[in-house]
Amino acid sequence: MEPNRLQQIAAIVRQAGLNEQTLAVLRETFGDTHFTSCLDDDVGNVEPVHRDTAFNVYLVDGREHCLKLTTDLQSATGVLLAQVDDAD
């Protein structure tokens, strides 16, 4: 995954918000990348590759049998968009 793509993804989510419609647009626009979402509190003690006001971006490595979070752009096959709670 290219750093430019991460910036494009973050810009789309920042503008449209993190919701099912935005995920559908991302999946259509970046068809070779898997997208999923959750609450940031559900992620655990992993640092995001991008922090934003309302969401954080994590990378997913799905090349092996089990999915795992990664910070390595070259091994990323997916993106996890995590909604940040205003109280955090």
Rank of each mutant, 00 (worst) to 15 (best):
Met1Lys: 14
Met1Asp: 09
Glu2Asn: 14
Pro3Met: 07
Asn4Gly: 00
Asn4Cys: 00
Leu6Ala: 01
Leu6His: 09
Leu6Thr: 02
Gln7Glu: 13
Gln7Gly: 07
Gln7Leu: 14
Gln8Asp: 14
Ile9Pro: 09
Ala11Gly: 11
Ala11His: 03
Val13Cys: 07
Gln15Pro: 04
Leu18Thr: 09
Asn19His: 05
Glu20Gly: 08
Gln21His: 08
Gln21Ala: 13
Gln21Met: 02
Gln21Arg: 11
Thr22Trp: 02
Thr22Leu: 02
Ala24His: 06
Leu26Val: 02
Leu26Ser: 10
Arg27Leu: 02
Arg27Glu: 15
Arg27Ser: 15
Arg27Pro: 03
Glu28Asp: 11
Thr29Leu: 09
Phe30Ala: 04
Gly31Lys: 06
Gly31Pro: 02
Asp32Phe: 03
Asp32His: 07
His34Ser: 11
His34Lys: 06
Thr36Asp: 09
Ser37Cys: 05
Cys38Gly: 09
Leu39Phe: 07
Asp40Phe: 03
Asp40Cys: 06
Asp40His: 08
Asp40Ser: 12
Asp40Glu: 13
Asp41Asn: 12
Asp42Val: 00
Asp42Ala: 14
Asp42Cys: 05
Val43Phe: 05
Gly44Val: 02
Gly44Phe: 04
Gly44Leu: 05
Val46Arg: 00
Val46Lys: 02
Val46Thr: 13
Pro48Trp: 10
His50Trp: 09
His50Ile: 08
Arg51Phe: 11
Thr53Leu: 06
Ala54Gln: 02
Asn56Val: 00
Asn56Asp: 10
Val57Glu: 05
Tyr58Leu: 01
Tyr58Asp: 03
Leu59Ala: 02
Asp61Lys: 08
Gly62Glu: 14
Arg63Pro: 01
Arg63Leu: 12
Glu64Ala: 13
Glu64Pro: 00
Cys66Gln: 15
Cys66Ser: 13
Leu67Asp: 15
Leu67Met: 13
Lys68Glu: 10
Leu69Pro: 12
Thr70Asp: 10
Thr70Leu: 04
Thr70Trp: 01
Thr70Glu: 05
Thr71Val: 08
Thr71Ser: 04
Asp72Ala: 03
Leu73Ala: 12
Leu73Cys: 06
Gln74His: 15
Ser75Glu: 11
Ser75His: 11
Ala76Glu: 05
Ala76His: 10
Thr77Gln: 12
Gly78Tyr: 08
Ala82Ser: 06
Gln83Leu: 15
Gln83Met: 11
Gln83Glu: 09
Val84Trp: 01
Asp86Arg: 13
Asp86Val: 12
Asp86Leu: 10
Ala87Lys: 13
